[in-house]
Simulated assay, not measured.
Amino acid sequence: MSITWILVANASAAYLYANYGPKKGLQKLKEFRHDASREKGQHLVSDRPGHNKSHGNGCGSYISSTHPKQHEARTFACQLARELEHGRTTNSYQRLILVVSTPFMGLINSNMGSHVRNLVSDTFEKDYTKASEKYLTRHLESCIYL
């Protein structure tokens, strides 16, 4: 029996489903929330950039090269990739389907190891995190036997 995991995610929420075979439907395994990704950027950092001395008449200020919301999205993608890797090492699934929003898909892919990436059979760049299970199953009929 082949177990398929389906990860439905965006930068602030993710749901992990499993399909245990034909006529078994989807079963929700876990739900992940990353509220920091939903915060305004100004709430994620201190109120002013730090100051540093420069070789000249004035002083400069340090501005981070990464936007705080982008950093939080990377953190969440790393957390999800670790969860997928843990499932792979424990043989919890043999096949993986990614249903991830377009901007977040690149972060997920860059954090996934090659072994997990080899288990990915289908990818959908859509944000179905707010979709019902019934709606989701209709869109996944083409790649799994529900």
Rank of each mutant, 00 (worst) to 15 (best):
S37G: 05
S12K: 01
H55G: 11
G21H: 07
Q70K: 10
Y93M: 04
R38A: 00
H67P: 01
H55K: 10
R95M: 10
K24G: 08
L29H: 04
L7A: 03
H43S: 11
A9P: 07
L26D: 09
R33Q: 15
L44Q: 02
Y17V: 01
S64M: 05
T75A: 14
H51Y: 09
G87R: 13
Y20R: 13
L80Y: 04
F32Q: 06
Y17E: 05
C59Q: 13
Y20L: 08
N57E: 14
N10F: 05
A73M: 03
P22F: 12
E31M: 02
E85T: 10
V45W: 01
T89A: 07
A36H: 07
A73I: 01
K30Q: 10
A9H: 07
G50N: 09
Y15G: 06
Q42N: 09
S65P: 11
Y20H: 13
I63G: 03
Q27H: 09
H86F: 09
K53Y: 12
E39L: 14
Y62L: 14
S64W: 00
L44C: 07
Y20M: 07
S12L: 02
A81S: 14
Q94D: 15
L84N: 00
A36Y: 02
E39C: 07
Q42L: 08
E31D: 11
I63E: 14
E83C: 06
